[in-house]
C-alpha cells in the first residue's frame, strides 16, 4: 500500500504570506553562505540536505484528505477536505491513463473542513464516475447536499453527473471495499463524534484517526484505541494541540495531542505514526518544532519497546507501507 497526503491541515485551509516565503529564501541563502551551484538540481539537493524542512519546504495548508493506493480497481480516499481538489485533478490524469473511475471515500465526520473539498472535486462532475461515500454518520449525505445549497455554493448537488452513493456503517462490523478490509471506531469529537478507520490488506494495516479527543476523564476508553491501532504499520493521528492545551484551553473541541498519539501507538505496538491535522495558526516552524518535540518525547517514554518511527505529514507526502 502507498499512502499519499493531499491535505494535512486542521480546521481551516491556510497559505503562507509572501513574507513567510521570503524569510525561507533568506534563511536558505544565509545557510548557503555564498556557495555557488552548477544548476538548479544541485541547488535543490543542497536545500533538501543542508536546510531544515521548514526552510526548504512547507507542511501545506489544505485540509484533511488522504489517499491509500491499494487496489488498481478503485481510488481510496479518507476525508474530503480542501486537499480533495488537487486529488481530483490528479485522479483525472490517472483515469486518462486507464484507471477505473471508481472512488471509495471514507468520511471521518461531516464537519466543514472535512467535506469542503467535495464541491471542487472534478470527478464528481463526470458522467461515468462512481463515488461511494462510506461514513459512520447517517447524515453524511445531508451535509454534502447542504453545503451545495444555493445560499452556499452555485452548483447544486443534484446536478453532479457522477453516480454518488452513501453507505452508513456501524462501528462493530468490518466490511470489504476496494480490496481492503475496513473497520470503524467511534471517536469523541465535540457533540456528534467522529469515526476512525483501519484498513487492512495482505497483512499490512493503516489506521486513520483524526478529530479524536482523548480527554483526562475517559482514559479508560483508550484501551479500545490501543486494540484498534494494534500492530498497525502506519497510524495517522490528529495531533493538533499540545496536551496542556488539549486539556485546558482547547478542551471539548475534539482534538488530540502529539504525546497521546505516541502513547497510544506505543501501547498498540504500532510501527509508524504520522502527525496530522496541523493547527492552522501554526507556521511551518511551529509544526516542525512540534515534530521535533514529538521525536524527543517518543525517546523519553519508549522504555524497553522498539522505537516508534514518527513522521510529520505534509501536503504531498507519500509513504510506502
Amino acid at each position: 500500500m502507498r499512502v499519499r497526503f493531499w491535505g494535512t491541515r486542521g480546521s481551516l485551509p491556510v497559505a503562507p504570506h509572501a513574507d513567510a516565503v521570503l524569510a525561507k529564501v533568506a534563511r536558505a541563502l544565509m545557510i548557503a553562505r555564498g556557495r555557488s551551484f552548477a544548476d538548479q538540481d544541485e541547488a535543490t539537493a543542497f536545500a533538501r540536505e543542508e536546510t531544515e524542512f521548514a526552510t526548504h519546504a512547507t507542511y501545506g495548508g489544505a485540509t484533511a484528505c488522504m489517499e491509500i493506493e491499494a487496489d488498481e480497481e478503485a481510488f481510496v480516499v479518507c476525508d474530503m477536505g480542501s486537499g480533495m481538489r488537487e486529488f481530483g485533478v490528479n485522479a483525472l490524469r490517472r483515469c486518462a491513463e486507464g484507471h477505473p473511475r471508481l472512488y471509495h471515500v471514507f468520511l471521518s465526520h461531516p464537519n466543514f473542513d472535512h467535506v469542503m473539498g467535495f464541491p471542487f472535486f472534478r470527478p464528481a462532475y463526470e458522467t461515468g464516475a462512481r463515488i461511494v461515500i462510506h461514513s459512520g454518520h447517517p447524515d453524511a449525505e445531508a451535509a454534502l447536499r447542504r453545503q451545495q445549497e444555493a445560499i452556499c455554493f452555485p452548483v447544486p448537488f443534484e446536478t453532479l453527473r457522477a453516480k454518488i452513493e452513501f453507505v452508513t456503517h456501524p462501528p462493530d462490523q468490518p466490511f470489504e471495499a476496494a480490496g481492503l478490509t475496513v473497520s470503524l471506531i467511534r471517536q469523541a469529537h465535540a457533540t456528534r463524534g467522529s469515526y476512525g478507520y483501519r484498513f487492512e490488506r495482505d497483512g499490512k494495516a493503516v489506521v486513520y484517526s483524526t478529530d479524536a479527543e482523548h480527554g483526562a476523564e475517559d482514559m479508560d476508553a483508550e484501551g479500545a484505541f490501543e486494540t484498534f491501532f494494534a500492530g498497525a504499520d502506519l497510524v495517522i493521528c490528529d495531533t493538533m494541540y499540545s496536551l496542556g492545551d488539549a486539556v485546558s484551553l482547547k478542551q471539548d473541541t475534539g482534538h488530540a495531542s502529539n504525546v497521546v498519539a505516541v502513547d497510544l501507538c506505543h501501547a498498540a505496538g504500532a510501527k509508524r505514526l504520522a502527525l496530522f491535522h496541523h493547527e492552522p495558526n501554526g507556521s511551518d516552524e511551529d509544526i516542525q518544532r512540534m515534530f521535533y518535540e514529538t521525536l524527543r518525547y517518543e525517546e523519553l517514554v519508549r522504555g524497553e519497546r522498539p522505537p516508534l518511527e514518527v513522521l510529520c505529514a505534509y501536503d504531498g507526502l507519500e509513504v510506502e507501507v
Binding site: 499540545s242 496536551l243 496542556g244 495531542s257 502529539n258 514529538t294 518525547y297 517514554v301
Partner: peptide, 15 residues
C-alpha cells in the same frame, strides 16, 4: 531532566 523535558513538551509547565 527527562521529566523537565516532558513537562515542557506537553506544556504542563504552563498548567
Amino acid at each position: 531532566a527527562a521529566m523537565k523535558r516532558i513537562l515542557a513538551i506537553s506544556r504542563y509547565n504552563m498548567l
